[in-house]
Amino acid sequence: MAFLQLKEVEKTFFTYDSVTTAVEKINLTINKGEFISIIGPSGCGKTTLLSLISGLLHPTEGQILLDGKQIEKPTPETGYMLQQDYLFPWLTIEQNITLGLKTMGKTKSEEKELAYELLDTLGLSDKTKHYPSQLSGGMRQRVALVRMLSTDPKLLLLDEPFSALDYQTKLKLENLVFSTIRTHGKTAILVTHDIGEALAMSDRVILLTHRPGSIQQEFSVAHHLAEELPFNVRLDSQFTPLFQEVWKEMESLEKQT
């Protein structure tokens, strides 16, 4: 069943002396529980696309339907993880992860239970009274994940969540994020510039063209791989051929410019 539908979506930015079309002709249908990755050259409109789906931006043309309803403005139904963690430095970890709930007016302790539970799952329950500056990059990203999941959103938007981390931390977090999202049965869209990460984590990979970004090609990951932990996918024999297929396609994009 179509959970999220993008129909002929276009976004053009206007400034006084420029008109920039960031994305155009985007047609995409995502089913409930699917994990989709979007890759493409930098500046091709990946962040713009996520902002459109989150409701922070409105499409210039076309429609975006979530559960059949047009998206008007951001709602806690959709969780959005920005390119950096953007934890609030003046709040403790505890206050950071309950920020969304507080905004929604949910301050009862049973409403906060999920947030603490997630923090515990991600191994940070001893950090509740700490401030973000006292945590490492990987820990901060995990806190940002908890903050996003705390409101129990149905759709997750992840904008290059691992790009600022060292390789080892990144591989570990991929596993952690993947299993957390899968156990909670969420639908997720991950933006990344790392082909390996896209293939390791998702059911489908969407490749965007140079700006104005439109869908160049879609790659499906075999079902048994899509169910595996990202780290194991990277070790699988089918991984490398798939990687090369995507790589070639990206290379041909480079040549076009």
Partner: peptide, 28 residues
């Protein structure tokens, strides 16, 4: 940083909530 406000907005915050939740404390 506009992204602090984006975080607030992604939770459905009103302009008032964004101001007191992000803009004001960030300017301490």
């Amino acid at each position: 940083d506009d992204n602090y406000v984006k975080v607030m907005k992604s939770f459905g915050a009103t302009k008032r909530q964004s101001f007191f939740g992000a803009i004001f404390p960030a300017s301490y």
